[in-house]
Design a protein around this nucleic acid. Structure first.
Length: 421
DNA sequence: TCTGGGGTCCTAGGACCC
DNA sequence: TCTGGGGTCCTAGGACCC
C-alpha cells in the first residue's frame, strides 16, 4: 500500500514576507495580486478580520477594522526562491518529493521505517527552522486523500498541523463531516451538480454509482471517486512533465488607448516569455496574442476582445517572437477602445535541439549568440538591463506594484545587511 | 483610478478522408 | 425506390487547479 503525503506552506506568500520582516511576524498580513488588484494570500489573523480571497483591495483597505493590517505587492522571485528552499529541505529527508505548486509538495511516505506522525512532526519542525515556512502535512493511501488530510490539518488547530487518514474508520468519520466541494478536483460547478443530485459530503460521494459519477462529472470525477475510495490512480511523478505552453499576460497599470503603447506592451510581453522559453531550453512552434477592454467598466459599445494565433518556425529568439506577436496584434487591434489587458501565449513547445531548418529564413546562429549575450547581461545586472527597443522606454503602462518588498534572496542589492556591535 | 496570472486536462464539434 | 458510416485530427471553450 502506498502512502502519499502532502505538505503545504501556510499562507505561503505571507509567510515568505514574514520570514524577512520581523515587524510583521505578529500582524495580520495580506499579499496582493499583480497590479495590486486584490488579496490573494492572507494570514490566519487577516482571515479572522474577514478579508476574503480575491477581495478587491482598493475597497477593502479602507475598512476601519483593517487598520493594523500590513500588505505587500506580490514578489514572485522571492516566493519562487523560498519554494526552492523548502523543496531542498524535504528532498534531503524524504525518498521522493514531487513539487506540485509553488507552496505544495507531494511526498512518498511508503514503507518508511518510522512512526509517520513523529516523522512528519519532525519534518514540519525542520522546514520551519531552515526555510522559515510554517506548514501542514496530511497523508493517506492516495494523493486525493492526502489533499483532504492536509486540508483537515490546516482547518483544525487541535491537530497541530498534522492529519493521518490512512486508517479507514477514521477516514470515513472525516468523510461524513467534509463537504464534497472541499475535495481536490471538485470545483464549484461540479459541486453544484452533485448537490442537485442530493450529494453533499465526501461520504455521500464515495457511495455513488460510478456510472452516475461519470455522467455528472466525466472521467475526471470518476477518478476522484476512485482515489477517495482508496484506490490510487495518480502516481507520484518523479520527473516534472514537459511544459506544454508558456504565457505572459498582464493587466496594464492604466488603460491603453493608443497603438504605440499597446505595441510596446505586447513587445515586452513577448520579450518576457521568450526569456522564459530560453531558460527552459525550449522552442515555440505557435504563438497567440490577445487584447481586451475591461468587461467590468466598458459599456457594450466600448467593449472589445480578440485573439489570433499562428504557427511559426520553431524558435526562442526574442526578435522573431516580437515580430510575430506584432503581426498578430496588428490584425486584431482596433482604434477607439481603452484596452486594459493583453497577453502573449506560446504553444507547441519542443526541446531547443538545434535542427537546422533546410529553408530557414533567419540566421539562427547569429540570433542565438545575441540572445545568449542579452540573457547573460540580464542575469548579471538585473532583469530588463538589456531589452529590445520595441519594448519602449517609459513603459508607464506597467502594472502597479506600490507595496513591493525587496527581493531578499535573488538580488544582490536587496540582500539584508546585519549590523553587529 | 481601482477586481491577477499561469497552468493542465477533457469534451464537443467541425473538417476531412475513404 | 434508394442520399452512409466511421475514422482521425484539430481547435475552442469549459472546468479546474494554485
Amino acid at each position: 500500500m502506498p502512502v502519499f503525503g502532502l505538505i503545504d506552506g501556510n499562507s505561503f506568500y505571507c509567510s515568505c514576507q514574514r520570514a524577512f520582516d520581523a515587524s510583521v511576524r505578529n500582524s495580520p498580513v495580506v499579499v496582493l495580486s499583480n497590479n495590486d488588484g486584490c488579496a490573494i494570500a492572507r494570514t490566519a489573523e487577516a482571515k479572522q478580520l474577514g478579508i476574503k480571497m480575491g477581495e478587491p483591495w482598493h475597497l477593502a483597505c479602507r475598512r476601519p477594522a483593517l487598520q493594523g493590517v500590513r500588505w505587500y505587492s506580490s514578489n514572485y522571485p522571492l516566493y519562487a526562491d523560498m519554494s526552492r528552499r523548502m523543496f531542498q529541505v524535504l528532498e534531503y529527508r524524504v525518498p521522493r518529493v514531487e513539487p506540485y505548486s509553488i507552496d505544495e509538495m507531494f511526498l512518498d511516505l511508503t514503507a518508511l521505517p518510522y512512526d509517520l506522525a513523529t516523522f512528519c512532526a519532525d519534518l514540519r519542525r525542520d522546514v520551519l527552522e531552515i526555510s522559515k515556512i510554517p506548514t501542514c502535512i496530511g497523508w493517506g493511501p492516495t494523493k486525493t486523500i492526502a489533499k483532504v488530510a492536509n486540508r483537515i490539518a490546516k482547518a483544525d488547530p487541535a491537530l497541530q498541523g498534522l492529519c493521518d487518514l490512512n486508517d479507514t474508520a477514521l477516514r470515513h468519520d472525516w468523510y461524513r463531516r467534509t463537504d464534497i466541494e472541499d475535495v481536490w478536483g471538485i470545483g464549484h460547478k461540479g459541486a453544484e451538480r452533485l448537490r442537485r443530485a442530493g450529494i453533499h459530503t465526501i461520504a455521500d460521494f464515495v457511495e455513488m454509482d460510478t456510472r452516475a459519477v461519470r455522467n455528472l462529472l466525466t472521467v475526471v470525477g470518476a477518478r476522484v471517486q476512485a482515489e477517495l475510495q482508496g484506490q490510487s490512480c495518480l502516481p507520484l511523478a518523479d520527473l516534472a512533465a514537459p511544459r506544454q505552453g508558456l504565457a505572459c499576460t498582464r493587466t496594464f497599470g492604466r488603460p491603453i488607448d493608443n497603438w504605440s503603447d499597446l505595441r510596446e506592451a505586447v513587445a515586452s510581453y513577448a520579450t518576457t516569455v521568450a526569456a522564459k522559453l530560453r531558460r527552459d531550453r525550449l522552442h515555440a512552434g505557435s504563438i497567440s496574442v490577445f487584447i481586451r477592454t475591461n468587461p467590468r467598466t466598458s459599456t457594450e459599445a466600448g467593449w472589445y476582445a480578440n485573439q489570433q494565433s499562428i504557427s511559426i518556425e520553431p524558435t526562442n529568439d526574442t526578435m522573431a517572437l516580437i515580430a510575430a506577436s506584432l503581426r498578430l496584434l496588428r490584425k486584431i487591434w482596433k482604434p477607439g477602445y481603452r484596452y486594459f489587458k493583453a497577453g502573449v501565449i506560446l504553444d507547441a513547445l519542443a526541446p531547443a535541439a538545434r535542427q537546422g531548418a533546410l529553408f530557414s529564413t533567419r540566421d539562427p546562429q547569429r540570433a542565438e549568440s545575441v540572445m545568449a549575450a542579452m540573457d547573460a547581461l540580464n542575469a548579471r545586472f538585473g532583469r530588463g538591463t538589456v531589452r529590445p527597443l520595441a519594448t519602449g522606454t517609459r513603459q508607464d503602462w506597467r502594472p502597479r506594484q506600490a507595496f513591493l518588498s525587496p527581493a531578499y534572496t535573488t538580488r544582490f542589492e536587496d540582500i539584508m545587511q546585519v549590523h553587529a556591535w
